[in-house]
């Protein structure tokens, strides 16, 4: 992978911006188009781009598979955990209103949606990266001539 100088430079510039955009989509999802699903995919795409340009070894060094395995499960746990916390605080499962006493501005709903979306983000990001690792880990490194 000594070639592709332009690709490497451009992707190095782009990857932080892609992650930043993913975070914008995540936390602006209440106000405009976006949310955990889309943001998760966008952040996963940044890792996939890194793996495509710099190779799988570099990508797995940056984002190790054990972290991904934890991430896939922890997203679901965060989501369900919000539900159990609302139950502990006296509400129904996933009834966010009990999370915060400020009912006039629905602060509890905002908190609940924020945490639930973070759970979705974790799971979707990790799952997309995990699936990509699973497939790309089987593909032997290709020489350019094969294309």
């Amino acid at each position: 992978m000594k070639k592709h100088l332009i690709l490497r430079v451009v992707s190095k510039l782009l990857i932080p911006l892609i992650i930043l955009y993913g975070l914008y989509v995540q936390f602006h999802g209440d106000f405009g188009a976006g949310g955990g699903f889309q943001a998760g995919v966008i952040i996963a795409v940044s890792v996939i781009l890194y793996a495509l340009i710099f190779g799988m070894d570099a990508a797995q060094e940056a984002v190790p598979p054990w972290l991904i395995k934890i991430g896939t499960a922890s997203g679901v746990i965060v989501f369900a955990g919000v539900g159990f916390i609302t139950m502990l605080m006296g509400g129904n499962f996933l009834d966010y209103d009990v999370l915060h006493p400020d009912l006039a501005h629905r602060a509890g709903q905002h908190m609940g949606i924020l945490w639930v979306e973070i759970g979705v983000l974790l799971t979707v990001t990790s799952v997309m990266i995990a699936v990509f690792y699973a497939f790309a880990g089987r593909v032997p490194d290709m020489s350019d001539e094969e294309w």
């Binding site: 949310g35 699903f37 995919v41 799952v127 497939f135 089987r138």
Partner: peptide, 20 residues
């Protein structure tokens, strides 16, 4: 549909893994 698309690509991944 938003969730269906994401689930759809996850199941597509399972199908492709079976094919592999």
């Amino acid at each position: 549909i938003l969730t269906a698309i994401v689930v759809g690509v996850a199941t597509l991944a399972v199908g492709l893994a079976l094919v592999v």
